[in-house]
Computed example of a mutant assay.
Amino acid sequence: MRKSNRAAAGAAAWQVVHEGVKPGKPSLWARTRAIPRMFGSRLRGRYTQLPVSRLLLYVLAMLYILSPLDLVPELFIPLFGLADDAVIAVWLTSGLVGETERFLEWERYGDDYIEGHVVG
């Protein structure tokens, strides 16, 4: 993902969390509930718009955040130890915000939904 796309995704995640949901957009709760369905649909091969590589990165990011092991431990370098977790959490949140919106649209329109557009 290019730097400008990451910044836009991060801004969108911040907006959803702090400013609430815009009319016509899925709520934060709807997006959160969609994550297990999205992963399940991808693993069953139904939702193919989520590449397996990105799915694996999302899972690894979740495991890293939840894991007691850190790349940069807070004990030795407190500021950087927290920063690495924060960076990964922001990346994961921004990625899931966009991905769950696409997934919810795909659920709504089924196979007529391709790359952000309803076909047919």
Rank of each mutant, 00 (worst) to 15 (best):
P51A: 03
G20I: 08
S41T: 08
N5T: 15
E105V: 11
L104H: 04
A89S: 08
V17K: 03
G81K: 05
V21F: 02
P23D: 06
V59A: 06
L82Y: 10
F80W: 14
A9P: 09
R2C: 03
D84H: 12
L57S: 12
S4H: 09
F80R: 12
V16Q: 12
T100I: 00
F103H: 07
G20T: 12
Y47K: 06
V87E: 00
I35H: 06
M62P: 05
L50H: 03
A89L: 11
A12K: 13
G120P: 05
F80G: 06
S94F: 01
T93L: 14
E101Y: 07
A8F: 03
I114V: 09
V119K: 10
L28C: 01
L96N: 03
W91V: 12
D85K: 15
H117N: 14
E107Q: 15
V52A: 12
W91N: 05
W106A: 11
L79P: 12
P26W: 00
E74L: 10
Y64C: 06
A8S: 13
M62L: 08
P36E: 00
R6Y: 04
H18W: 09
V72L: 11
K3T: 15
V21W: 02
V16K: 09
P51R: 02
W106G: 09
V97F: 00
D112T: 09
G20P: 09
L55V: 10
V72P: 04
G110S: 04
P73H: 00
G40A: 12
H18P: 04
G120R: 11
N5R: 14
L56T: 02
L57W: 02
L79C: 13
S67T: 04
D112A: 11
A83F: 07
Q15S: 14
L104D: 03
V87K: 07
V16L: 13
V72W: 05
Q49E: 14
M38R: 10
F76M: 08
R37Q: 06
F76V: 13
L71T: 09
F103V: 05
L79T: 15
A13S: 10
I77P: 02
T48Q: 08
